[in-house]
Design a protein around this nucleic acid. Structure first.
Length: 702
DNA sequence: AGTAACACCC
């Protein structure tokens, strides 16, 4: 009788204290401590069970929460609600729905939790239907519905609902402010803000961050200065406003003034410095931080990656693992991008193992990044295997695979994937078409390409953009139909951009169409005066027609306009170690003696086969590589020599280069592949070249 | 004492 009264009547004060301890530990993430309190309680109440269920959900253990729910002697509506909201927060809408339907006496909290679930899932129609069926509504349920409407872009519907609400509190008003700001209507947000009878720090912060997101930084700063009380979030909002607008100095000033620097502000500072190329300062913030989170590590990885400190990016990722920080999605994606960028397949495989171990191999973004990494490492078979095994591919993942095949010149494979995609009733998007069209282009499938382009232009969902026309110009140009390509440009409904003209210029180089080349180059120089690409291409056109004076004129105008190319650099991975080569300095590598020996041997063999260097590529890369050209030691050639020395017989030699491969080296490497019987896979800035038996997969057109 | 809504980083 005593126990029953503990459950049904007034609980003892000891039980009340223990219950709040359970909730407290749950919120702190100390689920074991919460469980211990529960286990040691002499008398448990329904609230004890409810609190522990909520704690399990907070700590992402729905199974334990569920078994507790099934075992509890008595339930009330709050017990069901804890289950519903727990499932909703984990995104398990179907489970939430099942509990909701079995709730004997749902109250407004049950309905609101369910409503929140639909909104979270983006099922606004279902949310609205549920909302209409609700027997009782209050200001909270209305606010959830408001947020749903705004998330769906229906700000004016939200406003109407807001106006009809019998009671509006500070949360509902703040939610409207955020909604207005999200669609760029900061003036209306400000009106709402000014009319608020009561404001808290959150309302002020919402208004400030609304301004910063709409790049109205000075308005944000004014509010920031006059607001009565700020918290960490307010400071962080103002600071990230500055970093995102590229105003890193002002961000830094705020950062210095902050008493407690939250992780988020530090992370924003790291990214902000990184965007300005201030890698050292970013690293300083990183080193001074005590509580780094996954965002910190992935930000630092990203800073290194984006400032071409790829090896440092790898180092930091390694330190992260040494510090026993489990990488989560963002850092995994960043490091896969590094692997893809460097094309280091062994490292990529290790990351793949980590992905499987951490059980995140069902995340579509992570797996897409993995596929791209395998593609960029030249391992298409592995990419395809990962692709095939993945359930729930989104259009982005299909695009990764199609584009991957296209970049390797495997047009037919790309088309096969495209057909599979259509069989699966997955709708292609603009990127898909860029992938298949470029695949057709690389493989000379003009007829197929034209048909697909026709399908796309009649398909109302995707409107062709300049990129699609660029693919078509490229395709026609490669096939020798330069005039048809020119006609297409004249008649295209969108304005031709640099990519389109660049494709035309490339075709002119191969087919020696001087008059059209000049038209294209002139347009290109107008569109992108800073870009060295058109200079180089035009120079090659002139050179192939032996117009040396024009080559010289061009070189002069290039240096007077301060156009210069990034120094050429190639690298290869041997024994999980990345070896870099720059054009000018073969002596930089510790094993330069044997590399030079191999280069000289190859030169001899090439000469025996009657190979003579092609002078038309003189302007390919200026300065550093130009010097090296005379020595025939372009960076890609050094890397090939090193690969022949170090990569076991029978294994392909994989080389990466930051610029497009030099034409002379391209011819030479074809022969080197033949002489040595080696397969050489070279990834340049644009595409892949598979050299085998004296020929290249690009069919000498890239 | 437990169950539902608003703001900041990647």
């Amino acid at each position: 009788m005593r126990r029953a009264s503990a459950c049904l009547g007034q609980p003892s004060s000891a039980a009340v204290i223990a219950n709040s301890r359970i909730a407290w530990f749950g919120r702190l993430g100390r689920i074991d401590a919460a469980r211990k309190v529960f286990d040691e309680m002499p008398e448990r109440t329904i609230v004890s069970w409810n609190s522990l269920i909520a704690a399990y959900f907070l700590n992402r253990q729905p199974k334990l929460a569920c078994s507790l729910f099934e075992r509890m002697p008595q339930r009330n509506t709050a017990s069901y609600n804890a289950m519903i909201s727990g499932y909703v927060k984990l995104g398990r809408l179907a489970d939430a729905q099942a509990v909701f339907e079995s709730t004997p006496d749902p109250n407004v909290v049950s309905w609101t939790s369910m409503l929140r679930g639909y909104v979270w899932a983006g099922a606004i129609d279902d949310a609205e239907a549920l909302f209409r069926r609700m027997p009782e509504k209050n200001v909270i349920s209305c606010t959830v519905m408001l947020a749903g409407l705004m998330q769906d872009g229906r700000i004016d519907d939200a406003r109407q609902m807001f106006d009809e609400m019998p009671e509006k509190d500070v949360v509902a008003r703040t939610s409207m402010i955020t909604g207005y700001c999200q669609v760029g209507r900061t003036a209306e947000a400000r009106e709402m803000f000014d009319e608020m009878p009561r404001r808290n720090v959150v309302s002020w912060t919402a208004m400030i961050s609304g301004y910063t997101q709409n790049l109205q930084l000075d308005l944000a700063r004014k509010l920031f200065e006059v607001m009565p009380e700020k918290n960490e979030v307010t400071w962080t909002a103002m600071l990230t406003g500055y970093t995102q607008a590229g105003r890193v100095e002002e961000a830094e000033n705020l950062f210095k003034m902050m008493a407690d620097k939250p992780v988020i502000a530090c992370n924003a500072m790291i990214i902000g410095f990184g965007q300005k190329g201030m890698v050292t300062q970013a690293r300083e913030v990183f080193d001074q931080m005590l509580g780094k989170d996954d965002g910190t590590w992935s930000s630092m990885v990203k800073v290194y990656e984006q400032n071409t400190f790829q090896l440092e990016a790898l180092d930091i990722f390694r330190s992260m693992q040494m510090a026993k920080i489990f990488p989560t999605h963002p850092s995994i994606i960043s490091i896969l991008t590094v692997c893809a960028g460097l094309a280091i397949i062994d490292y990529g495989k290790q990351v793949h193992a980590v992905i499987i171990k951490l059980d995140i191999d069902s995340d579509v973004y992570v797996v897409s990044a993995l596929i791209t990494a395998y593609v960029k490492c030249g391992n298409l078979a592995k990419a395809k295997k990962v692709f095939d095994m993945f359930d729930g591919k989104d259009v982005g993942m299909w695009n990764s695979m199609i584009t991957g095949y296209a970049q390797h010149g495997l047009g037919e494979e790309a088309l096969k994937v495209y057909l599979d995609m259509k069989l699966m009733h997955m709708a292609p998007d603009e990127i898909t078409y860029i992938g298949v069209l470029s695949a057709c282009s690389y493989s000379g499938m003009v007829k197929e390409g034209k048909e697909i382009f026709k399908t796309m232009t009649t398909n109302s969902v995707v409107t062709p953009r300049a990129e699609h026309y660029a693919c078509m110009v490229d395709m026609l140009g490669r096939a020798g139909n330069v005039d048809e390509a020119m006609d297409l440009i004249r008649n295209m409904p969108v304005e031709a951009d640099a990519v389109v003209w660049g494709a035309l210029l490339g075709a002119c180089r191969i087919h020696k169409r001087l008059e059209i080349a000049e038209i294209a180059a002139k347009r290109l120089l107008q569109l992108e005066p800073w870009n060295s690409g058109p200079y180089v291409l035009l120079s090659n056109v002139y050179a192939s027609s032996r117009r040396w004076e024009d080559v010289e004129k061009l070189r002069k105008s290039m240096s007077s306009r301060n156009v210069s190319k990034a120094p050429g650099c190639s690298w290869t991975e041997v024994d999980k170690f990345v070896h870099m080569f720059t054009g000018g300095d073969v002596l930089a590598h510790p094993e330069h003696e044997i590399i030079i020996g191999m280069l000289e041997r190859l030169d001899g063999l090439l000469k025996e086969m009657g190979y003579c260097p092609d002078g038309s590529y003189v302007l390919h890369d200026v300065d550093e590589e130009q010097k090296a050209h005379d020595l025939r030691y372009h960076s890609e050639r050094q890397a090939v020599a090193f690969g022949i020395l170090k990569v076991p017989e029978g294994m392909p030699i994989r080389i990466m280069k930051n610029l497009r491969v030099c034409g002379d080296c391209h011819s030479a490497i074809k022969l080197i592949a033949k002489i040595t019987g080696r397969e050489i896979i070279l990834r340049d800035a644009n595409r892949f070249h598979h050299f085998k038996d004296g020929s290249c997969s690009c069919r000498d057109y890239w």
